[in-house]
Design a protein around this nucleic acid. Structure first.
Lengths: 346, 346
DNA sequence: GCGCATAGTCGAAACGCTTCGATAGTATAT
DNA sequence: ATATACTATCGAAGCGTTTCGACTATGCGC
């Protein structure tokens, strides 16, 4: 593998001149530059990333911190990973994956202090997130996909849960539904302050109230059985329920079964809308599910770009971007069933 | 950030002694070692990964080469990524993600020649894979998840399609099925020599023949509509079909619909088994799908460990590991419908 | 014709580590 | 005693870059 020194010799210039030519750090005459690039070409020279990183104190590597979540990672998380990797590469960075099984913040700290990465993108944020606190105290550059309690001075992107809920509820209102259930993530997630679990529920209740609608909520572990049980609980609490919004893909089949068990048809007798879901999951079931799809790709790319811009010092000001999920109407949502509701009322 | 020099001074030894103490490269007296580790502790010293890599010519970073596949990555691929990242970390390595949108092998080559990574794990292998050819010619260390035309001298892991097909077919035979369809990935994938598409089909036909059963195969684009159409084509070709094996999760809902359209019930009238699938996908549908689940986690870990062992020179010999999918019987497979078949025969 | 920027280039000093060769001291074998 | 072989340590030479300070032309204003 040829080194910069080889290129310099071959082009008849000083080592430093080659460096300047490559990085454009100082003016180089067109003629010399050409000679250097020819030499590079001829020798098949590639700058050594490690040496460059060591000398410049900028590795051009960033890390994606992803937790081995209890919830189990899904397609949305996969998109975060892929989009972050792509965004990094497009900007000339490498992306390393750090799974934060890492209990002690100490272990995480050691990772950062190895000097391997210039900054990190953190996902699956909780309200009180010790990773974020650590990053703050050691003043390490980072960006978040999600939000925590205090987001001041932090570059971050997140789903716009307010807007998403408004769109979804408007969709159901437009179909005549007035009694709507919300099936959240597990209670454990909510109590741990997991962002989506907290904000989606809050926004759901706010929006329902603002529109004079009846909203009922329940937590639900991610499984068929729990989905089944939970939707029955929702219906027990509010028998007038004609639709449910679910933020827990793995509970969906349970809901479908519970509705089928009652002899109801979807969407004639009952509507389902999934939020923060994906087309891929929505099309696995019969009927296909109307979903508000997570803008996962955008979020991953944006967060990564924010971090890189911060690292390049291109801008000091902090950005925040909230992106709503995109509603895609499929087979699971339809007109509110006038009759069934009346039947229940008798 | 303290350096090794700082530690050395603080412990009253030479710089090199600290290095030997850390790496155990040369014997150090217990007393000195203790003094050095105390100093490290006290100063909060962390070795600099870049400097270490530059000096030792071993970065302890490996890359996972994953293609932005047309098929679209799914849960199985996500598990590869996660398990590779975990295995890397457990072995003291970092894992960087390289998406191989990378058309020209040249671009890939540049990545390797940056000296950033010690080796790569390649996934989504095709029979003729230019990435593999490149790696071979530049003699770069790598391991594969999958196989190509010539796997000699290459560390690799793969699904044991032969064993998997035998298990699945035995399961269906045990239920009395004799006419079984196989719904493959898209023709395009097959023709491009995409490993699973090629080997699963070959093994299916072999095993069917060996058991004196009637097998029919079809390619299928990954979508509901195509699943629907393709299963109808299969049934047109062999009206005696009572079961189908599908290696294309996204086609499953289409199959379910096609069967329902005929007024058939699953599994009473028709059985479905998914291969190289995941529990998560299998439980999204009604009925839940009997699946041969991809050993994704094992494959990702194993391939990564093989690569690392190779890098550490612990063993010269090449390993190959084939792991079969694990059959999990769910609601979609049942006794062969004697009556329906007779009805068709009349 | 003089002072002064500025373009273009060079040499050398980092960057923080690994590793080689040398040296001194201590056992072990002869 | 003497050669032999470790054990424990040190100093210095890299690893392949970036970057700083210096130096030489060259052009320009006046």
């Amino acid at each position: 593998m040829p080194t910069m020194q080889d290129v310099a010799r071959h082009a008849g210039v000083a080592l430093s001149t080659v460096s300047y030519a490559i990085n454009g750090t100082r003016p180089i005459s067109e003629e010399t530059r050409q000679r250097i690039f020819d030499a590079m070409e001829e020798l098949g020279y590639r700058p050594n990333a490690l040496a460059r990183g060591l000398a410049s104190k900028r590795s051009r590597i960033i890390a994606l911190l992803f937790p081995a979540a209890k919830r189990g990672l899904g397609l949305t998380e996969l998109e975060f990973v892929i989009s972050a990797a792509n965004a990094a590469r497009e900007n000339g960075y490498h992306l390393v994956l750090w799974s934060t099984e890492i209990r002690s913040a100490a272990e995480l700290q050691q990772l950062m202090q190895q000097g391997l990465v210039d900054g990190v993108v953190v996902m699956e944020i909780h309200d009180q997130d010790e990773r974020i606190e650590l990053l703050r105290t050691i003043d390490f550059p980072f960006a978040m996909i999600g939000r925590c309690a205090d987001n001041s001075e932090i570059n971050h992107v997140d789903i716009d849960f307010g807007q998403t809920m408004q769109t979804v509820i408007a969709h159901l209102m437009g179909l005549g539904h007035t009694h709507i259930g919300f099936l959240n993530h597990a209670r454990e997630e909510f109590e741990a302050g997991y962002g989506p679990a907290v904000r989606a529920q809050t926004r759901f209740l706010e929006t329902m109230a603002a529109n004079g609608l009846h909203g009922t909520t329940r937590f639900c572990e991610p499984s068929l059985e729990n989905g089944h049980r939970t939707v029955n609980e929702l219906l027990a609490e509010d028998p007038d329920l004609t639709a449910v919004i679910v933020m827990n893909d793995r509970a969906i089949p349970g809901i479908l079964r519970a509705i089928a068990d009652r002899g109801w048809r979807i969407p004639a007798d009952f509507s389902i809308v999934a939020v923060v879901s994906s087309a891929r999951a929505a099309e696995m079931t019969i009927p296909t599910i109307t979903t508000a799809e997570a803008p996962a790709y955008e979020l991953g790319s944006l967060a990564t770009e924010m971090l890189i811009h911060q690292l390049e010092g291109e801008k000091k000001e902090i950005s925040e971007r909230l992106i709503p999920c995109k509603l895609v109407a499929r087979e699971s949502s339809g007109q509110c069933p006038g009759e069934r509701v009346e039947l229940q009322k008798n």
